[in-house]
């Protein structure tokens, strides 16, 4: 069985997906998926979460059900381990397709996981996901980097300049 991209899909979305895929995987071999299921059998998330299935996800893309997919929590459930990409005999890569769908959902102003904003704000503030913490020690008390003789964590020297790279990234996703 060969599934081809349906002609009902919004052409701009197809162009965006194709462009993103070209950027990410150097161009898909063809818009074909044999539905062999190697991606799903490799997927660690599929093992534990019923309903998360990369093979079906590609079939839904091929059938043009993009709007439905963009609103589906499933696209944010992928753990990005890349096993599906590694094992796909057609180099279609559900992983890359999922990243593209996430990018589309963000541009469409749809929900993405709330923790993204927390982590991204952390990176915009100091370059890392958080300040160095004081960690509970097995022997009691708390240990800091300084207590272990480790140098401080500085992050980018000029944070304003650093933030310029990803200017307004959070606001853009909220349709502002």
């Amino acid at each position: 069985m060969v599934i081809r991209l349906s002609s009902d899909v919004d052409q701009r979305q197809v162009e965006f997906i194709s462009l993103m895929l070209q950027k990410s995987v150097g161009g898909m071999h063809a818009e074909v998926c044999d539905q062999c299921g190697k991606c799903s059998s490799a997927c660690p998330v599929s093992k534990e979460i019923e309903g998360f299935n990369p093979r079906q996800l590609i079939a839904r893309v091929a059938l043009g059900k993009i709007d439905e997919l963009l609103a589906d929590e499933a696209i944010w459930t992928c753990t990005t381990c890349l096993k599906c990409r590694e094992r796909c005999p057609e180099e279609i890569s559900p992983y890359d397709v999922i990243l593209v769908l996430r990018n589309l959902a963000y541009r469409a102003g749809l929900n993405y996981p709330g923790v993204y904003d927390d982590f991204i704000n952390g990176i915009l503030e100091r370059g890392f996901i958080s300040e160095p913490q004081e960690v509970r020690a097995r022997g009691g008390g708390r240990l800091s980097r300084e207590a272990l003789g480790l140098p401080g964590v500085n992050g980018p020297k000029d944070m304003a300049v650093f933030r310029g790279i990803v200017e307004k990234i959070i606001e853009a996703g909220k349709g502002n």
């Binding site: 990243l99 996430r102 990018n103």
Partner: peptide
């Protein structure tokens, strides 16, 4: 890839 790439690939 699971963070900023997921919402803005190029950034």
């Amino acid at each position: 890839a699971c963070l900023v790439h997921s919402i803005d690939y190029v950034k």
